[in-house]
Amino acid sequence: MKDSLCEEHVFHKEYISHELKVRNFLFYKLGDLEKARDFTQEAFIRLWNNCAKVALNKAKGFLFTTANRLFLDHYDHKKVVLKFEHRSNRSENQMEQNPEFLYEEEEFKQRLETAVSDLPEKQRVVFLMSRIDKYKNREIAEIMDISIKTVEKHISSAVKTLKDNLDEIDNLKI
């Protein structure tokens, strides 16, 4: 093994490339940024403590598996409420091109946040990993240990549920 995780610079590089994605994964599951951060830190501590036993190309898998284990061990059945911020490099006219749901921009965001929070856990996590973290379906399949077909199914079901949910609110409004 040439590049060992026990070497600090290698570990730091792994940290930089995965920290936010592991944190986000936990956030989608928990709906709690602070807890997600704590669990992420713990996952990296465990990776460091096991650096001699984990091959470099298995580090990502180890981190997500550990994160998931921490989540399962401390799952408290609370309803997830997700809030997001807009990326800073977002183009201004994006919303105006797609005025299909006729809400004020902020209202649309809030309704969509609620609808996303209400998605079944697997659909929610897979959908957000795909759209926010820009993971490829193949990568998500590996991380979640499910087939690529299932990943695709989760994503399109999520999008359909979101649309139906917003349609319903739209109809009630009229």
């Binding site: 920290e19 986000n24 990326r87 959908f127 999008v159």
Partner: peptide
């Protein structure tokens, strides 16, 4: 257009603007 609007919105989301969680 509905699908495009939904996905377009989510594509622009991030949980927060933190760059690093802690110092490794």
């Amino acid at each position: 257009l509905k699908y495009i609007q939904i996905v377009g919105e989510v594509d622009n989301w991030v949980p927060d603007h933190t760059e690093h969680l802690f110092d490794p």
